[in-house]
Design a protein around this nucleic acid. Structure first.
Lengths: 240, 240
DNA sequence: TTTGCTCCGTGCGCTGACGCACATACGCTA
DNA sequence: TAGCGTATGTGCGTCAGCGCACGGAGCAAA
């Protein structure tokens, strides 16, 4: 069975009152998401929703046979499968596992029942959707206006916030798909960051060396999104 | 008082059952939105929500003192003030009136009460939010990957769908803010479209000449977003 | 008719990123 | 320790879009 509550490391679940937590937990099963696994393609019917705990999932939009572009990151702060919450059964983006690790999974039908029985879960998810929309919007502007190096720094920071490890695995090819640029573009940007001793890079292993330095190298978009998220999370407690 | 129901030209309101429509209508007041009016800035507390009927509102993200970038368009198919629906009181984007005309407005507090009393309104708005997220995501990719000319064509088509007039008023400067490019970039793109007899352009007045041609000139993003919206709208009826 | 304002068109040097191709480096397996 | 596959580094020509600056054209009030 599932491990005791305190190790359920997903923020949305952790914030639930005991009663609602029990409603949710009944249908959840622990899974391990593997790097590169695709949870949904655009248009796919959503079979399961996922609450990442130690894993990380990217939401990607595709365009005209082009490269993909990441529009959102979901870690232990969120849920994958948001369309269900909004009364839709299909995903409009690709959901790709970008950080290997643990998650809790639930069948779509069971989730919907539990969701409708739990007003606190509803409130949390709606607020999370607000934060996600803000994240997507800001990322859109960032991808339009800022140079690759700043965007890479932002992306590393956002990832770091969610995996809570100083080292993670990520090839440049993969990063190119996230940022919507060529691998070579990532190579140059990563080397620039490495030359400034902000990160350490080797064969897919990225080590964060200097968070403060990275925040300086990143564009303001990182802070904007982070602060908005804080606002959301802070807002979770006082209500009712 | 408000005009009879059939001229309430907002899709979300028009789709409501009589009972729920009456709940909503009680708090609505007709207003005329004027070109360039800012309904919210990022961080602003939302005082009113708006259901555009003949008007058009752009959702813009700002970045580092850069140009703005449109992430979404709201016309008679939607509502402005979505954060309220998601339990938040502040906007994370700028809402700018981009097409002058009529809308129905409601005070935030009254709206929230009405919203919570009307499950059909809830269902419709949640489904609209799904469509809006899809629109934002796809627009993000489009703004990243496609050339100005295609994006301009897409933008004109999306606007045309919502204003349902063949002519509308829009300076190139303004368009630059929507697409996140310089005015001169718009000039070049607009001239290319005009040279192909797709639009007619003069001192802020754009006339659509050839929709099919514009669809050919636009990137696939237009169709992707439109089809997803159709899916949402089609989905509104059969449920329950 | 002149003045003034807003809007649109053009030119030019610059640069970030692209697309393509090839060269190296690491680490695993045989 | 030779070989192979994956991952990273480099080079080069091209181009869309930028920033800046100025020229011209339509419209309205004086």
């Amino acid at each position: 069975m599932l491990s005791p509550r305190k190790v359920i490391e997903n923020s949305l679940l952790a914030a639930l009152p005991r009663k609602d937590y029990n409603i949710m937990i009944a249908g959840l099963e622990p899974v391990t998401l593997t790097l590169g696994e695709v949870l949904y393609e655009p248009g796919d019917t959503i079979q399961h929703i996922y609450f990442p705990s130690a894993s990380l999932v990217s939401l990607l939009t595709l365009a005209d046979g082009h490269l993909a572009l990441e529009v959102g990151i979901v870690g232990r702060d969120g849920m994958v499968g948001i369309p269900l919450v909004l009364g839709h059964t299909t995903s409009s983006v690709r959901a790709l596992v970008q950080g290997e690790g643990a998650a809790l999974r639930m069948k779509a039908g069971i989730f919907l029942k539990a969701f409708h029985r739990s007003p606190p879960m509803q409130r949390e998810l709606y607020r999370y959707i607000h934060a996600l929309m803000a994240q997507i919007s800001q990322t859109a502007a960032c991808n339009r206006f800022h140079v690759v190096e700043s965007r890479l720094a932002r992306w590393l920071l956002m990832t770091h916030d969610r995996v809570q490890r100083d080292e993670f695995c990520m090839t440049q090819e993969f990063l190119g798909h996230m940022l919507g640029v060529r691998r070579v573009g990532v190579t140059n940007a990563a080397r620039a960051l490495q030359n400034n001793n902000l990160i350490q890079y080797s064969r897919g292993n990225i080590t964060m060396l200097d968070r403060a330095g990275l925040e300086a190298a990143a564009c303001g978009c990182y802070e904007i999104v982070r602060d908005m998220n804080d606002g959301v999370m802070a807002g979770l407690q006082p209500r009712q």
